[in-house]
Design a protein around this nucleic acid. Structure first.
Lengths: 329, 329
DNA sequence: CTGAAAGCGCTAACAC
DNA sequence: GTGTTAGCGCTTTCAG
């Protein structure tokens, strides 16, 4: 079937293409009888407006680009779900881009996005590339950043204050006299880890102490598991903080085989968990960061920026700490 | 910064826009000196070709639409990764669409895709909507279906023969005299379940028996867990087959609390697992369907269809059964 | 209320 | 080799 255009419809309905354009755009000024005729023609021909041509004429593509780190969608999946649900409401399409350290040059992705003429871009990346954002800004593309507090001209953000979360938790432990606290520092989420450490440091400082325990583990469950098994042979901590549930599980599984009891001898808390947490034993105490909301709110913010110019700002989403079986109380 | 167009570049370089078009498309016929001048202008102005305009002129958007069920990216995530890696190589953009029963009308998504004028669409959906495929075909949009064997004019597919996988497994158990075998029938993956049952049925038939055990569970881990706990109070099976690792875990956790020993008293095998399988105890015996490859091969197939017309066909990807701790041997 | 025509940015013959 | 020009399909003044 040859793609039918607005001309075909116009001819069929015996009107000009301008009129057809008016009815597909729901303009009220078209006379009822004419409208019916056009709609009949559209129906008969199976006409669908060409979004590409509309995009050209309107300088507006109604699609926004989403940039995420590839790898485990276990975490980003929820963000995507939130984003898509909202994008559906506002009729935006989503162009998906992933960046993988070493594999995908982020600059290529940015280049691509610029060429695409998307209406905006939502970036969720652990390592926020100032430089890339600057380029996008130069082309005046509205940006919403997920996970980092940052704002500016045509730039908004949605984030969770990880630093404060960790600070509060560590603070409460220090109050109880627990001060052998360690943060597992994976290679994949440097930025988050930095914030976690900053939060812990602040809490320690408040107690006149200095925080310095971070355990650097290699990437991937198996590697970190092996590493941790070795590590725990001659290290012990009262509380371990990790970024992801998988890392927390690696710690727990590694110590289990050496006979360390969780939570009696070692407590464990992670920032982000997945649905698998409810299937695992012990169930991890976690902050359950609101992933779905991060996505949904980011998309909502984007639509606002697109509709009423100058709606920039950063939104701080709240978290809920949920103690489960890996902490004492 | 006002978006610079091909005209601006042409003026800056003192050539016609046709020449600029030639150099950005890498046509060799441009004289070296001219090319340099144009490239200098492009660089100076920060010009990026407008993909929308190119799309209109070429009737080719170099973007393909991906349709997946929303919800758990834990499984589809790998498919997406495979797809994106390949799409990067061939310079295609991915438009992400999700369909959720009850929330998103699939017909709306299809409508959207048609308007977008994508070059092709890759569909991964448990319930393959013949009707939707028919509509896409009508508009002559090349399709690659993931997970179902189907092909036709401009339609290809990439799948794993689940039916055979289950048949072989069940057959081997029947050979050993184990015949109290049940399949967990979740509400979410009807199509897969149908194939699993078909496979089991064939094996049973071969042994002069008839398969009839399917346990219908509700959606979601908690619901199914509760349901199964009730169920196992007065039902026992020697072997349980599930679609996802989460469902297998629900069975295991539900029976554990009643004192059923896995794998001694009950064996469990799932079709698809995730990275969490290596963290859980017991580790599930599984088929580990090649999710990443499904995505990668599907995308590769799509590029082939797009380049050389008439490359349709269906590709059967192989699986590997990996016995772990939930089966006896 | 409807039509004619210019223009969105780029490609692809077709001339020169 | 390089420029001219006619579209690609749609929106949007501006007339009528």
């Amino acid at each position: 079937m040859k793609r039918v255009t607005i001309y075909d419809v116009a001819k069929e309905a015996n009107v000009s293409l301008a009129t057809v354009s008016r009815v597909i755009n729901g303009m009220e000024i078209v006379r009822g009888e004419t409208r019916d005729r056009v709609e009949a023609a559209i129906e008969k021909l199976g006409y669908k407006p060409n979004a590409v041509a509309q995009g050209l004429a309107l300088k507006k593509t109604t699609t926004i680009a989403l940039v995420i780190p590839e790898a485990s969608f276990t975490y980003t999946g929820q963000i995507i779900n939130g984003l898509l649900d909202v994008s559906k409401i506002y009729k935006y399409n989503i162009m998906l881009h992933t960046v993988t350290e070493g594999i995908t040059e982020i600059s290529e992705v940015i280049e691509n996005i610029i060429k695409s003429h998307v209406d905006g871009v939502i970036i969720y990346s652990d390592k926020l590339q100032e430089e890339e954002i600057a380029i996008l800004s130069k082309y005046e593309i509205p940006i919403v950043v997920i996970g980092d507090k940052i704002s500016g001209h045509r730039i908004s953000s949605v984030y969770v204050d990880i630093e404060r979360a960790v600070e509060e938790l560590v603070d409460s432990y220090l109050d109880k006299g627990v001060d052998d606290i360690a943060i597992v520092e994976d290679r994949t989420h440097r930025n988050s880890i930095k914030k976690m450490i900053a939060g812990a440091s602040r809490a320690f400082e408040k107690h006149g102490k200095v925080f310095q325990n971070y355990v650097q583990i290699p990437r991937g469950y198996h590697n970190s598991y092996d590493y941790l098994q070795e590590y725990f042979k001659n290290h012990r901590h009262q509380l371990i903080l990790t970024n992801r549930d998988s890392q927390a599980m690696a710690c727990i599984n590694a110590t289990k085989e050496i006979g360390v009891k969780v939570p009696e001898e070692m407590e464990v808390v992670c920032l982000i968990d997945t649905k698998y947490n409810s299937m695992m034993r012990p169930q991890l105490s976690s902050f359950s960061l609101p992933s779905y909301d991060l996505g949904a709110v980011a998309m909502r913010k984007m639509t606002k920026m697109l509709e009423d110019e100058g709606e920039e700002g950063s939104i701080n989403l709240s978290y809920v700490y949920t103690p489960r079986q890996t902490t004492k109380q």
